[in-house]
């Protein structure tokens, strides 16, 4: 996404969004937008972990911080497109919905799904972040006002 020439930027963005969606949300939006297409499993939903790495002193050499749970699956639509999902937590039905969306985003229906699923989901996640950021901003210390001694 930072790299304007990244041909995968679009897919990276929607897969990242699907990974972070709240439980059940992708399925709800998907079923509201359309009837799900038929598919066959290439890899049924599977729960596992990812080792999260970090850097010493934030910018130094990497170290292993600890794991997080991840659910993944892969499916193929009847029309041939392959959809993958790697999402946070232990959520098999959410992984299925995410993989269906990933596959459908490679079809002619992509624009409709973007408008009816990805954009609303993106707005919801942004709004939740903005709410926390606004509460954090309200706890910012204003030393300057204090030093002036108004009142």
């Amino acid at each position: 996404m930072k790299n304007g020439f990244d041909e995968n930027a679009d897919r990276k963005a929607w897969m990242g969004l699907l990974a972070k969606a709240p439980a059940g949300r992708v399925a709800t939006l998907l079923d509201a937008a359309m009837t799900r297409p038929g598919f066959t499993w290439l890899r049924t939903p599977e729960i596992g972990s990812a080792m999260v790495r970090a850097r010493a002193g934030a910018t130094g050499a990497p170290f292993n911080l600890g794991e997080m749970t991840v659910t993944r699956c892969t499916l193929k639509l009847e029309s041939g497109e392959v959809g993958h999902a790697y999402i946070q937590g232990r959520r098999k039905s959410d992984a299925e919905a995410a993989a269906v969306v990933d596959a459908l985003m490679q079809t002619g229906i992509a624009d409709r799904l973007r408008a009816q699923l990805l954009e609303p989901l993106h707005d919801e996640l942004s709004a939740a972040k903005a709410t926390r950021a606004a509460k954090a901003a309200a706890t910012k210390v204003d030393f300057f006002t204090l030093a002036r001694g108004e009142g």
């Binding site: 990812a50 999260v52 790495r53 970090a54 850097r55 794991e67 993944r72 926390r132």
Partner: peptide
């Protein structure tokens, strides 16, 4: 429980510089 999970891989080192800070 953790020992029962297959490990799918390793993340890239997280960037705490892009943290959305509560504090």
């Amino acid at each position: 429980y953790r020992t029962t999970l297959p490990r799918f891989g390793f993340s890239k080192p997280v960037d705490t510089g892009v943290m959305t800070c509560d504090r």
